[in-house]
């Protein structure tokens, strides 16, 4: 059964002012339990607005969001319960840190959920472990951490609520390549252990190609594609028309294929490309 179902969802900003803008336009889809969805789209394509409708931060002007088969706006007073089930990490989440210590900041979410005592302690430490923040850092002020550590502390604050769906809005933006790789592998590690659904919004085609089971492409508020990474990244021209592109390694391999090298189609990561080159060299007896 699908965990999240979105039916004809639309959202318009600033209705009745000169700044009126339709951010999400008649969007329908369903997301299964345990999937990693990569969400890509040009700036202003409505990605952020769409993900904010999933946990009820934005109330859709039309359409429905069903979580486990139930409309999340059925009882508007209980919208907070939805927010514990659908955890949301915003862009640059380190700007939301506020408490005296990292430990207290991470416990803000689970404490709001109603945890206390040993349960709270266990959850906080587990969340910190997922993003490899060691115990020494937990007693520091969040404002004394480095950029990457702040980011990870903020993500831990959402993971600590133990949500069934975790939405990450460009979690790697502004990190150095090493921090990026580290964070992505931590997210994958967390997903393997917890087996929950993850929606990853990103501008990096490489990132989504690496982690996503399915990729969702948005353009001007509309859902253009929702398919496996292989299928999505084979539609090069369409993607380019929307101001997107395929991962660099995919382009390199396509060009090489056009030049006559016998590589298979739809290579998405450097690792896959490495294996392809290796097997080709072996086949030609050059290795």
């Amino acid at each position: 059964m699908s965990l999240i179902e979105v039916k004809n969802l639309s959202f318009t900003y600033g209705i009745g002012t000169p700044f009126e803008k339709k951010a999400v336009d008649d969007l329908s889809l369903s997301i299964n339990e345990g999937e990693i969805i990569g969400l890509i789209g040009h700036t202003g394509s409505g990605k952020s607005t769409f993900v904010q409708t999933l946990n009820g931060l934005i109330k859709p002007t039309e359409g429905q969001v069903l979580l486990e088969g139930k409309d999340i706006w059925e009882k508007p007073k209980e919208i907070r319960k939805v927010r514990f089930k659908v955890g949301m990490v915003f862009q640059y989440p380190e700007y939301q840190l506020f408490d005296e210590t990292v430990y207290k900041d991470i416990s803000f979410g689970p404490a709001n959920k109603g945890l206390s005592g040993d349960d709270l302690d266990k959850t906080v430490r587990r969340a910190a472990r997922f993003v490899s923040l060691n115990d020494r850092l937990l007693d520091k002020s969040p404002f004394d951490l480095s950029g990457g550590e702040k980011r990870r502390a903020a993500i831990a604050g959402v993971i600590a609520m133990d949500p069934d769906v975790l939405v990450l809005d460009e979690p790697t933006a502004g990190l150095d390549p090493k921090g990026r790789d580290l964070l992505l592998s931590q997210i994958i590690g967390y997903h393997r252990e917890r087996k929950n659904t993850i929606i990853l919004v990103s501008h990096s085609m490489e990132d989504v190609a690496r982690v996503a089971d399915r990729i969702m492409v948005m353009n001007r508020g509309k859902l253009e594609m929702l398919d496996t990474p292989r299928a999505v990244f084979s539609r090069v021209e369409e993607l380019e028309r929307m101001g997107l592109r395929v991962p660099q390694i995919t382009r390199v391999m396509t060009i090489l294929r056009e030049k006559g090298y016998d590589f298979s189609d739809g290579i998405l990561t450097v690792g896959q490309a490495f294996d392809e080159v290796l097997s080709l060299l072996k086949k030609e007896g050059k290795l």
């Binding site: 931060l57 915003f90 803000f108 604050g157």
Partner: peptide, 13 residues
């Protein structure tokens, strides 16, 4: 607005 959304997402009431 953004910070309020972020804290609401963490269950702030």
């Amino acid at each position: 607005d953004k910070i309020m959304s972020a804290q609401k997402a963490r269950g702030a009431d």
